[in-house]
Amino acid sequence: MKVFYSPQYVGATHAFDTTRKAGWIADSLTERLIASVEIVSPRPVSFEQLNPAHSTTYIQAVQNGNDRLLAEGNGFQWSHDLYPMVASSNGGAIDAAYAALSDGVAGSLSSGLHHASRDNGAGFCTFNGLAVAALDVLATGAARNVMIVDFDAHNGGGTADIIGGNTSVIHVDVSVDSFDRHEGSVMVDDAADYLPTCATELSDAIANNDVDLVLYNAGMDPFEKCDIGGLDGITHPLIALREQLVFDACRHAGIPVAFVMAGGYTGSRLSQDGVVELHRMTIATAVDRYACTDIIGGATPIAAA
């Protein structure tokens, strides 16, 4: 299974979990291998690939810092190394999408995506690699319909802004925090309802749509010990069941999946190692539940194990 990563993912001067944790996860994959995982360097996203999702004015602000207020809407101090970082991590999301269409499943250690809207960044997100990847595979004809599944703690209002009325993109968004809420999102405030809600929203969306590719925003910030977004009662085993749910549902429906890392932050109750272990769970689950199947490019669904 291809997992895309480059040291440029962590190249920005501004030091925060979103600009550093891809490196932590990559280091862990070198030190403690997950069988069948191949780390692959992505191609940086081009202006032409960004522009369908983001305005020229905003892209240029991030590139050259000519409008600092606009360029720093993500919450990071602008520097010349910001654009190479987000160009690489967003390129990884695109490459993971095409790899999944070819191989059945793939991932990227990208994060900081779903709050970025067409004209600005927000909430530690600069460019919206979920929307960028979806629009790219649609434009090239590699897919006819794409589903974005967002199980980050926070809502993906930036994604909703970009995809707008595009009927070729289905947006499933289950959150536990009201930040960046949009009309199509579903918010859960009781941990007992979390997994059933994720299951219902995902299964209904799969049943009611013809989907060629799922882009999965695998947020770990719903975890109860995460200070930014965590909900009491959402435990490590519950997150593990959520990951199994996503990959099993897509595998049984014959839908390729490309995943990215999304939220998950160190704090008073969650160490760097703890964040890494949560994100490794997505990768390991993808291998365990999905990567060894023969689903390629929306093949015939296979029977449940």
Rank of each mutant, 00 (worst) to 15 (best):
S6E: 03
S6K: 02
G11R: 00
H14V: 10
A15T: 13
F16Q: 03
T18I: 13
K21A: 11
A22F: 02
W24A: 07
A26E: 15
E31V: 09
S36A: 13
V40C: 06
P42K: 06
S46H: 01
Q49F: 10
N51P: 06
P52Y: 12
A53H: 03
S55Q: 07
Y58S: 07
V62E: 03
V62S: 02
Q63R: 15
N64C: 15
R68M: 12
L70C: 05
L70P: 05
G73L: 01
G75R: 03
F76G: 06
H80C: 12
H80D: 15
P84Q: 02
P84E: 09
P84R: 02
P84W: 03
M85T: 11
V86I: 13
V86G: 07
A87V: 08
A87W: 02
S88E: 14
S89A: 12
S89G: 07
N90Q: 12
G91R: 05
G92V: 10
I94K: 03
I94P: 09
D95S: 06
A97F: 04
A100C: 09
A100E: 05
L101I: 12
L101R: 08
S102D: 13
G104S: 08
G107N: 06
S108Q: 00
L109S: 03
G112T: 05
L113G: 01
D119T: 13
G121D: 04
F124S: 03
C125S: 12
C125F: 11
L135A: 04
D136A: 11
V137M: 04
A139C: 06
A142P: 12
N145R: 15
A153M: 08
H154N: 09
T159H: 05
I162K: 02
I163A: 00
I163S: 00
I163V: 12
G165R: 05
N166L: 10
V172Y: 03
D173M: 10
S175M: 11
S178Q: 15
S178C: 14
H182V: 14
G184M: 10
V186Y: 01
D190C: 15
P196D: 04
C198W: 09
S203I: 13
D204N: 12
N208F: 13
D210K: 09
V211L: 06
V211F: 05
D212R: 05
L213K: 01
V214G: 06
G219R: 04
K225P: 07
D227G: 09
L231D: 06
I234F: 07
H236K: 15
I239R: 01
A240R: 12
Q244W: 11
F247W: 07
F247D: 09
A249N: 08
H252D: 15
I255K: 00
I255V: 14
I255P: 07
P256D: 14
M261R: 04
A262D: 01
T266F: 00
S268P: 10
R269G: 12
L270I: 14
L270R: 06
Q272P: 04
V275L: 02
V276Q: 00
V276T: 12
T282H: 01
I283H: 00
T285N: 06
A291Q: 03
T293C: 12
I295Q: 08
I295A: 08
G297I: 15
A299W: 10
A305V: 14
A305E: 10
A305T: 14
